[in-house]
Design a protein around this nucleic acid. Sequence first.
RNA 1: GCCCCCUUAGCUCAGCGGAUAGAGCAACUGCCUUCUAAGCAGUGGGCCGCAGGUUCGAUUCCUGCAGGGGGCGCCA
Length: 571
Amino acid sequence: MDYALLEAKAQIRRQLEAFGPELNDLALEHPPKGINADLAMPVFPMAKAWRKGPPVIAKEIAEKLDWPEEGLIERAEAAGGYVNFHFKRERFGERVVSDVATHGLDYGQLDRGRDHTVVLDYSAPNIAKPMSVGHLRSTIIGEALARIFRKLGYATVGINYLGDWGTQFGRLTYAFIQWGDEAALEADPIQELLRVYVKFHDLMEEDESLEEQGRVWFAKLERGEEEALALWRRFRDLSIREFEKIYRRLGVQFDVWSGESEFYSAMSDRVIQEAQEKGITANDQGALIIPLEEYGLSAPILLRKSNETTSYETRDLAAALYRLDTYHPAKVLYAVGNEQSFRFQQIFKALELMGYGGVEWVHVNFGFMTLPSGRMSTRKGNVVLLEDVLDEAIERAGRVIEEKNPDLTPEERAEVARVVGIGAIKYSDLSQSRGKDVVFEWDRMLAFDGESAPYLQYTYVRCRSIHRRANVALQPFDGAALEAPEEHELLKTLARFPEIIEDAAREYAPHTIANYLFSLAQEFQGFYEKVPVLKAGSEAQVSNRLQIVDSVATVIRSGLDLLGIEVPERM
RNA sequence: GCCCCCUUAGCUCAGCGGAUAGAGCAACUGCCUUCUAAGCAGUGGGCCGCAGGUUCGAUUCCUGCAGGGGGCGCCA
């Protein structure tokens, strides 16, 4: 699979071989706007070895290079310390259009990951609690990364690792037995579970014995006592049913639903046993730990608490080993917030000490989401529910559609509102780099203008609209009929899509794709204003431009698909 | 005290070793009898937190400092 740009770069590299391997490390860059060139190579690093000034070196290289007639490169020239390359526009354009046309929505697919598996751990909500907007980031970033890695030929395993075990569920079980209401649990399970959990916490502030009750009931769970376990099982099942509704609306899918509860017994015993065999454990105040001070980590991993129950770290280690055994992954990614970075340092170090350092363990971290009023807390009630955000987005989108395009049928409108509303939410999160904290604001998350999903979707819709109105038979793409500079620029941008996907995967950064699509869309909108398609000067131009328009539509659609965002045909 | 993330235009953010630092929003000015104005064109707006260092070259890499956020064993 050699796409136009990869091929062009390979051709340049081949010519550079005339200078021996010395030039291999020089980068081939995309020159900034305003520079008249298609690719550029800075030669400054050669100055010392060659004992010449960069402009002289650039000139020597440019002059010695020789471009085969059948290649994609027209010529090279020196410009200061750069060698600038120019494509044979006709042939390059033909290649790009044919790349996109032959691969369709699979354009950009590469086989970088053949025979490799990536395990992705994302979303991971806690059962018995409503999902808030806070869960959006992990869910959406994880889903996007899974799609990106799949596009590069990796097998992926998306795991929803539920927070379904721990002392808190001892508390919840006890609380429900004390104050729970069956009918309410049936009607709105998460609401009812939250109610008794909040009550437990409120009372716990005055009554310290409750904390002990929580521990006692968790111990019952870990010992497998039926009364506790049956209740817990119901809580879990009911929660999953609620979560599934939201995932369906978000278009998020998992290959595996798992959870901490699967890893507290036999699997945990194995972790403890292996760690002991490796001689990396110690006893401390009745608990079994893995000391990590000598690796610069200020706290140890707690393998077994003094009351004999397991800790979440043990369960995480057990889950990690299970994933190795089951999927044999090259990488295991955890899409989890910054606030847990210390914990992942501990876990990855422990895995290394246990002899499992051969796998790439990656904490795909992201910033904290807060409300303008401060931290979210489900228990304290200052929280924005994910469900409400989805509803609001769709409703707002519906209002805009009614205003902008009243011709749509009610059914169309509802569907477009869904696609646009959900898209806007996802894009607002996926378009910025992961690391930064975000403050949730309705108007920002649900923006429909400027850099937003609706802008990209609208660009797609415009492409499709032209396509629908064209009732001419396409002729083979005719490079000789390329005329407007915008055409060439657009073709170059389209040609970058495959490498953008690789960048996104390498950095675990979906926003790379979002930003690329936005700049492609912007370029297209400029083209749309300036360059007539259906009313172009010649039949060859109409045909060419239609094919460029179709290519833009394909790349936008397939790029948005990588982000888990759908496109409407009209809006 | 130690560790992690962040600091670029009024606001929200791209750019993360290369050629004059870019968008979106907000403000102002234009553009719908040509392919959907959720659009386009234009104007104004920047000690790229501060100080050192590495480099031919630093917004980008390293060190220190300041500010914001998060975390630091029986919660996850």
